[in-house]
Lab assay of single mutants.
Amino acid sequence: MIVFVRFNSSHGFPVEVDSDTSIFQLKEVVAKRQGVPADQLRVIFAGKELRNDWTVQNCDLDQQSIVHIVQRPWRKGQEMNATGGDDPRNAAGGCEREPQSLTRVDLSSSVLPGDSVGLAVILHTDSRKDSPPAGSPAGRSIYNSFYVYCKGPCQRVQPGKLRVQCSTCRQATLTLTQGPSCWDDVLIPNRMSGECQSPHCPGTSAEFFFKCGAHPTSDKETSVALHLIATNSRNITCITCTDVRSPVLVFQCNSRHVICLDCFHLYCVTRLNDRQFVHDPQLGYSLPCVAGCPNSLIKELHHFRILGEEQYNRYQQYGAEECVLQMGGVLCPRPGCGAGLLPEPDQRKVTCEGGNGLGCGFAFCRECKEAYHEGECSAVFEASGTTTQAYRVDERAAEQARWEAASKETIKKTTKPCPRCHVPVEKNGGCMHMKCPQPQCRLEWCWNCGCEWNRVCMGDHWFDV
Score class of each variant (00 low, 15 high):
residue 2 I to L: 12
residue 3 V to S: 02
residue 16 E to P: 12
residue 29 V to H: 14
residue 30 V to M: 03
residue 34 Q to D: 04
residue 38 A to Q: 05
residue 39 D to P: 04
residue 40 Q to C: 07
residue 42 R to P: 01
residue 46 A to E: 13
residue 52 N to A: 05
residue 56 V to P: 02
residue 75 R to T: 13
residue 75 R to Q: 14
residue 77 G to F: 13
residue 80 M to D: 14
residue 88 P to T: 13
residue 91 A to E: 12
residue 97 R to W: 09
residue 106 D to P: 11
residue 108 S to P: 13
residue 109 S to W: 03
residue 115 D to Y: 05
residue 115 D to S: 06
residue 120 A to E: 15
residue 121 V to K: 15
residue 125 T to D: 14
residue 127 S to W: 08
residue 129 K to A: 11
residue 136 S to K: 12
residue 138 A to T: 13
residue 150 C to F: 01
residue 151 K to S: 14
residue 153 P to I: 11
residue 158 Q to R: 10
residue 160 G to S: 04
residue 161 K to L: 11
residue 162 L to A: 04
residue 178 Q to A: 12
residue 188 I to T: 09
residue 195 E to T: 13
residue 205 S to E: 11
residue 210 F to W: 07
residue 215 H to P: 02
residue 224 V to L: 10
residue 225 A to Y: 04
residue 229 I to F: 05
residue 229 I to Q: 02
residue 230 A to V: 09
residue 230 A to C: 11
residue 239 I to K: 00
residue 242 T to C: 15
residue 246 S to N: 11
residue 252 Q to E: 13
residue 254 N to W: 06
residue 254 N to G: 10
residue 257 H to E: 00
residue 259 I to G: 01
residue 266 L to C: 10
residue 271 R to D: 02
residue 281 P to E: 10
residue 284 G to Y: 03
residue 285 Y to E: 01
residue 298 I to P: 00
residue 301 L to K: 09
residue 302 H to T: 14
residue 306 I to P: 02
residue 314 R to M: 03
residue 317 Q to L: 08
residue 318 Y to C: 03
residue 318 Y to V: 04
residue 320 A to T: 12
residue 321 E to G: 10
residue 323 C to K: 15
residue 327 M to F: 07
residue 330 V to G: 03
residue 341 L to N: 14
residue 341 L to G: 06
residue 349 K to Q: 06
residue 350 V to F: 04
residue 353 E to R: 07
residue 362 F to H: 07
residue 371 A to G: 08
residue 372 Y to R: 03
residue 374 E to C: 05
residue 374 E to K: 07
residue 378 S to P: 13
residue 397 A to C: 11
residue 399 E to D: 12
residue 403 W to I: 04
residue 405 A to V: 13
residue 407 S to P: 13
residue 407 S to L: 08
residue 411 I to A: 09
residue 411 I to N: 14
residue 411 I to C: 08
residue 415 T to L: 08
residue 426 E to A: 12
residue 426 E to P: 11
residue 429 G to Y: 14
residue 431 C to V: 05
residue 438 Q to N: 04
residue 440 Q to V: 09
residue 444 E to C: 06
residue 450 G to L: 02
residue 456 V to W: 15
residue 458 M to R: 15
residue 459 G to M: 15
